[in-house]
């Protein structure tokens, strides 16, 4: 039961009783691929130098999965995330997100698809300093033109803030929050629309060990309890150990796909052992 805050739907939503709000477009059936990357390549020309960031990467993410993309710095994992999330266009290959080939969409269509079906969490908290916690979390609704004071939206915001353990901090501004709290606000904002996919780019990269753990727990809970599909980019094996599957990248290529399965203990041992075998 996903909520898609596109404008047409939002206008309908305003006219309806929140209790009878219809879900968004049907999510893929359990276990069905929700995201596919086919032979993705990305080439940059930097000052006349040709840099191949990705060289034919393919992957599949199924609904409800928690997938991590790992690799050393410069392996192309952030570039891959940008292509998967529709933030950038590949030089070759294609991305299929919930049956939509992103390369065939116009900028406006892509923007609306992003708004409706994805959520992003970035390394650098990316909150809007002028807005308080609730307003930051409600930003996707604001952009979509949905009244953020409606009962349904308020309930969603309250729910998602509880999920990231920020209840009681609703009216705080970003500069009044700790780094971990700010990142949790970012997660809440990404989850509030109940997107089909949540992309997280090094969300713990700027956090200490304990805070990073709390944040990963929040992501795990969203996936485990709410069947949220999560794609996590990280170079941290401890973070990657939360995932069901791990794609390992090096020099713009997928060098391994490690299936860890869903585990509540998030033991990083098996993953580290495999990465050691790979020389990482």
């Amino acid at each position: 039961m996903a909520f898609v805050p596109d404008v047409r739907r939002a206008s309908r939503l305003r006219a309806m009783d929140p209790a009878t709000v219809a879900p968004g477009p049907p999510r893929a059936a359990p276990g069905m691929p929700i995201l596919e990357a086919r032979d993705l390549a990305k080439v940059y020309n930097l000052g006349g130098t040709r840099v191949e960031a990705l060289r034919g990467v393919s992957l599949t993410v199924r609904e409800g999965e928690f997938v991590a993309i790992m690799g050393p710095s410069g392996s192309g994992k952030s570039t891959l995330l940008q292509l998967l999330g529709g933030l950038d266009q590949p030089s070759a290959g294609e991305v299929v997100l919930t049956d939509e080939v992103l390369g065939r969409l116009s900028d406006d269509e892509l923007t609306k698809l992003r708004r409706a079906r994805t959520g992003f969490v970035f390394q650098f908290f990316n909150l809007i300093p002028l807005l308080d916690v609730v307003e930051n979390v409600a930003l996707p609704f604001t952009i979509a033109g949905v009244d953020s004071r409606s009962c349904d939206v308020v309930a969603r915001i309250r729910d998602v803030l509880a999920l990231v353990d920020l209840t009681g901090k609703e009216r705080h501004r970003p500069d009044e929050l700790s780094a971990g709290e700010q990142q949790r606000v970012a997660i809440a904002r990404a989850l509030v629309t109940r997107p089909a996919l949540l992309f997280a780019d090094e969300p713990t990269g700027n956090l200490d060990y304990t805070t990073g753990g709390e944040l990963l727990d929040a992501l795990w809970r969203s996936s485990d309890e709410r069947n949220q599909t999560v794609v996590l980019v990280t170079h941290n094996s401890r973070a990657a150990a939360y995932a069901d599957r791990v794609y390992v990248l090096r020099d713009g290529r997928t060098i391994d796909e490690i299936a860890l399965g869903r585990r509540a203990d998030h033991d990083a041992g098996p993953l580290i052992a495999r990465l050691t075998q790979l020389g990482l």
Partner: peptide, 15 residues
């Protein structure tokens, strides 16, 4: 960066 964030969160160029 805030504008980029708005774009990432679904704000169109027109917005």
């Amino acid at each position: 960066r805030e504008i980029a964030l708005l774009r990432a969160a679904g704000a169109t160029r027109r917005q």
